[in-house]
Design a protein around this nucleic acid. Sequence first.
DNA 1: AATAAAAATTAAGGTACCTTAAGAAATAAG
DNA 2: CTTATTTCTTAAGGTACCTTAATTTTTATT
Lengths: 172, 172
Amino acid sequence: MEHFKISKTKIIPKGTLLLSYGDICSYGYKVESGCLKSYVIDSVGKEHILQFAPEGWIIADLDGFTNKKPSQIFIDSIEESTVSFISKFNYEDLNDLDKKALVDMNTKYRNNLIATHKRIIGLLSATAKQRYIDFTETYPTLVQRLPLKFIASYIGITPEYLSDIRRKIAKK
Amino acid sequence: MEHFKISKTKIIPKGTLLLSYGDICSYGYKVESGCLKSYVIDSVGKEHILQFAPEGWIIADLDGFTNKKPSQIFIDSIEESTVSFISKFNYEDLNDLDKKALVDMNTKYRNNLIATHKRIIGLLSATAKQRYIDFTETYPTLVQRLPLKFIASYIGITPEYLSDIRRKIAKK
DNA sequence: AATAAAAATTAAGGTACCTTAAGAAATAAG
DNA sequence: CTTATTTCTTAAGGTACCTTAATTTTTATT
């Protein structure tokens, strides 16, 4: 299932910034071990997490990478991680891939799109409490590993309010 | 750019339900004229719009269509529309497509994913007022055509609150 | 044109979630 | 083991956005 040019892997210490706002995004990152996250920073300096990438996942600024735009997002490491660098993920190269690779890639995009749509449904229609419960059910292993403040950011609430929610759940 | 089996087009009157919750989703819908929308209905009966599909757009329950699951969503017509029915959008058939078709499809998925990520960023980090302004800038032609209550639903607020927002914007 | 139906507005009161700030608990570092 | 740092919790007060309900405006129907 490897269709791209992948450079040798690197060990990334915890807390390392791999991609910053405004950077030209030359790489996607394939996580072999550890965990990365992507996020935006809003006008008042608050961080909003777009994606977690534990082992096996690929993370990138898809828009910047594809269209050679400066990045709108940040990517850093939540844990010490082993990461492969994927280059040349752009449109021209799609034509160089063989059919099997294209079909696999299609399937990955499609599954990602389905998951992303589900997240939108949650943000539009569920309460913060329900989104937290959904997160724990969808990503039980991440819940073990990640600081709660990152989960709060991912589901779109403050750590303080997540703390309230957890207290109320525990009291039942 | 047509890669799928497309049946003859049909004229769909305004307000017609094309796909309902629980249905097996056998088709994607390609809109030739008019406009469709997809939406979910939450536990208190409130409608949340996932997508608008004006002319040129394709709309479907991607998860149900791909994985032959009962639909989680609804699709209906906002205006009288001319619609082509796309069948056999599933995995097996991807292998029957030629390379050009696969590359095109990849590009469509990728662009859709980029747009969907932007929507998530907005829902996580922007106020309702900002999301409304962003919508009017991103889809100026839709703003002309659509009832405001549908735009409110798409950006995740009530029609009443959108009305407040618009009044405040107008007062300046 | 008249009537009905749908969409939009307005306003009052309510709730989910946020901000700030401080302290407690857990984890990391010396 | 001790201290520093990060994470988590708690609480009080505030704001963005919601609910309900009534009214007006716009659009559709006969």
